[in-house]
């Protein structure tokens, strides 16, 4: 869980000028500009994410070299490859340009991160909502199932799935890795969304909708779903960071993405202990890339939570 902290309560000073008035006077805080003004840290995170996305999309134009181009002169194994004007972040064991590999690695990290978070959170959200509505035995059963799955550490579950699902690469994206990462997210999201939906079901406006004779589907789609969109978005944002971290860990263990796909985690895998001293850039920069990306998504997720739904507990 990334953003596990509930937001700090403002001191109860707001009670002063009649909460109603302050509410009525407070301008609508739903524009991008308001977000930038109220959540500077989130804005920083958002900017980093935008830069990452741009460099991932335009990787061939941005990257100085082909990520698979081998330049033995730039290999630390042969005593070269230190960061310099030719290779800004240095070269790896095969003399490939690290900066280019990082830029192409952003494609892997972001696509796997986004799709696994999206798939995991969406399935989780559907299960959570169904469970909240069905209530009774279904709900109890789903809850038990969630509890059961939560007793497996995320990475253990992901590795098990990796072992089960056959390798499958489509358009350079490792589908099996996406599945492996998204499955552990399902119970976590289901739990959060279920409690969010449950708290809305008991609100008076849902009763009013029932009393007005609206159909069940209208109540769900018009009155309840729009109000769980906020926690859903927050979850996705936070879990993209998680997924990037997980992808890096799996690839590091040799269980995730495989060569020659550029991946940040993979760049750290099997690093010979010689390089710790002779070529520290091979270790520092890929890890920094992971950290920066996860950091950005965490910042954005945190700020989105503070902004949209401060009471949400992830």
């Amino acid at each position: 869980m990334t953003v596990s902290a509930p937001t700090e309560n403002e001191p109860k000073a707001e009670i002063t000028a009649s909460p109603e008035q302050l509410k009525a006077e407070r301008p609508s805080r739903r524009t991008l500009f308001d977000f930038i003004k109220q959540q500077p840290l989130g804005t920083i995170g958002f900017l980093i994410i935008v830069i990452l996305f741009i460099s991932a999309i335009f990787a061939p134009d941005v990257a100085p070299y082909d990520p698979e181009e081998v330049d033995f002169m730039a290999s630390p194994a042969l005593g070269g490859g230190a960061p310099g004007p030719e290779h800004l972040l240095g070269g790896d064991a095969f003399g490939r340009d690290i900066l280019s590999r990082l830029i192409f690695g952003a494609r892997t990290a972001l696509s796997i991160g986004f799709f696994s978070a999206f798939i995991g959170c969406s399935i989780g959200a559907i299960i959570g909502i169904v469970s909240a509505f069905a209530g009774g035995k279904v709900d109890i059963l789903v809850q038990r199932g969630i509890d059961l799955l939560l007793s497996f550490p995320i990475i253990i579950l992901a590795i098990l799935v990796i072992a089960i699902v056959p390798k499958n690469v489509v358009f350079g994206i490792d589908i099996n890795v996406i599945i492996a990462i998204s499955i552990p997210f399902i119970p976590k999201c289901a739990r959060v969304i279920r409690s969010a939906a449950l708290s809305i079901v008991t609100l008076a406006y849902v009763d009013a909708a029932k009393a007005a004779g609206y159909r069940g589907s209208r109540i769900v789609f018009r009155h309840i779903l729009p109000n769980v969109v906020a926690p859903y978005l927050i979850l996705i944002t936070a879990y993209i960071g998680q997924a990037i971290l997980l992808e890096a860990s799996l690839s590091f263990l040799g269980l995730g993405v495989v060569e020659p796909t550029p991946s940040w985690g993979l760049m750290l895998a099997g690093v010979n202990s010689d390089y710790y001293i002779t070529a520290p850039w091979m270790i520092v920069f890929p890890g920094l890339a992971v950290t920066l990306a996860v950091f950005a998504f965490n910042l954005l997720g945190d700020s989105l939570r503070d902004w949209l739904d401060p009471k949400l507990k992830l």
Partner: peptide, 23 residues
């Protein structure tokens, strides 16, 4: 009950939770 919903309406206590905040 659906047939008479129109004729029988309700007003709630809490003016903050009785209106959908997204509408």
């Amino acid at each position: 009950i659906a047939a008479v919903r129109r004729d029988m309406q309700v007003i709630f206590q809490d003016p903050f939770s009785s209106l959908n905040p997204r509408m």
